[in-house]
Simulated assay, not measured.
Amino acid sequence: MPDQPCSGGLAPAAPFTADERVAVYKAIQTRRDVRDQFLPDPLPDDVVARLLEAAHAAPSVGFMQPWSFILVRDAQVKERAWDAFARANDEAAAMFPDAQQERYRSLKLEGIRKAPLSLCVTCDPDRAGPVVLGRTHNPRMDAFSTVCAVQNLWLAARAEGVGVGWVSIFRDADVRDLLGIPERIEIIAWLCLGYVDALYEEPELAVKGWRLRLPLDELVFRDRWGTR
């Protein structure tokens, strides 16, 4: 039997108030990837619930909602995750030119150990069936939709005073084995979450000279690629 439409109607699309707009843009502009500044205080269940609700409110192609969330608080599980990261991090360091390796190794990436909560975000490509509205010609739209959920959570976390760090340096098989994730499920993100008492005013990698923010006007084209 096909899904039945919900009964919700249209609501006014009025712009936010000035204060509301300021809050939204403040969350966007001051969001940071936290690597080492986590406090040990546990996150209250109601805060975690709000962050997950924000993630679940993300847009998704074909309204497929492909995301799932694995909450990781167990110290032994997090330690095994850190071991997997450490092995991959050593491999990653060796990929950079010698001049950059020392700087790379100086970046503190201790979120898995220090943050009270880790969150593995996954994508189920089969959640809406084999043919999904909007995914017919781009099979990656489910993964892109899941990244929208990550961004929603990140911005909500900023509003809650919760820091978030995205750990991307690991071998997929290590995390899959650690958390019992089926082969057909894609691992999108390992996030570290916890309260912080300070955030960098600019992205940490810019502050530490790894890479600066690109000028926006160099990235905007008019009507076709390369035309400004």
Rank of each mutant, 00 (worst) to 15 (best):
D217E: 14
V207T: 06
V147Q: 04
F144N: 09
R35E: 11
L43S: 01
G62L: 13
D172E: 13
D3L: 12
N89V: 09
A18K: 10
L205E: 01
D124Q: 10
V24S: 06
L219N: 13
L178N: 12
D197K: 04
L212C: 11
V22D: 10
R135Y: 02
D3N: 07
C148M: 14
A143M: 13
V164G: 01
K108G: 08
V220Y: 05
R135W: 04
A75I: 00
R87F: 05
I181L: 05
R228W: 11
G180P: 11
F96T: 12
S60Y: 07
V24H: 07
D172T: 08
F16T: 03
C192A: 12
R211P: 00
K26M: 03
I169R: 06
P15M: 08
D3W: 06
F16E: 05
Q151S: 13
E53Q: 14
F69Y: 14
G8H: 15
P139G: 12
G209H: 09
I188R: 04
L71W: 08
K26S: 12
V196E: 08
G111Y: 05
R113G: 01
F221I: 00
F63A: 09
L199K: 11
S168R: 10
G180Q: 15
E201Y: 05
A115W: 03
D177V: 10
D177E: 14
A57T: 10
T227A: 14
E218R: 15
G134T: 05
L133K: 15
E218H: 15
A157R: 03
L205Y: 07
R135K: 13
I185F: 04
D217G: 04
E202P: 00
A75E: 10
E91V: 09
A86K: 04
P2S: 02
F144C: 13
P182A: 06
R211Y: 07
P203F: 05
L191P: 01
Y25F: 13
P97Y: 06
V22N: 07
I112F: 01
L191W: 01
V77G: 00
V164M: 12
E110C: 05
G129D: 15
D172W: 03
Y195E: 09
D3S: 03
S145D: 05
A173M: 03
P44H: 08
P15V: 05
D197S: 15
L179I: 07
A94P: 02
W190F: 07
S118H: 05
T136L: 13
P139H: 03
P5Y: 04
D223P: 00
A18L: 06
S168F: 02
Q37H: 13
V150P: 07
L109Y: 09
L133F: 15
S106A: 12
I169D: 00
T30R: 06
R80A: 11
A54F: 10
R35Y: 02
D174E: 15
Y195R: 08
C6R: 05
S118Q: 03
H137W: 08
W82D: 01
E53Y: 11
D33H: 07
E204G: 01
Q100T: 09
A92K: 13
K26G: 04
P42F: 15
P130D: 14
V24L: 14
R158G: 00
E20G: 12
D172I: 09
A143S: 15
A206N: 11
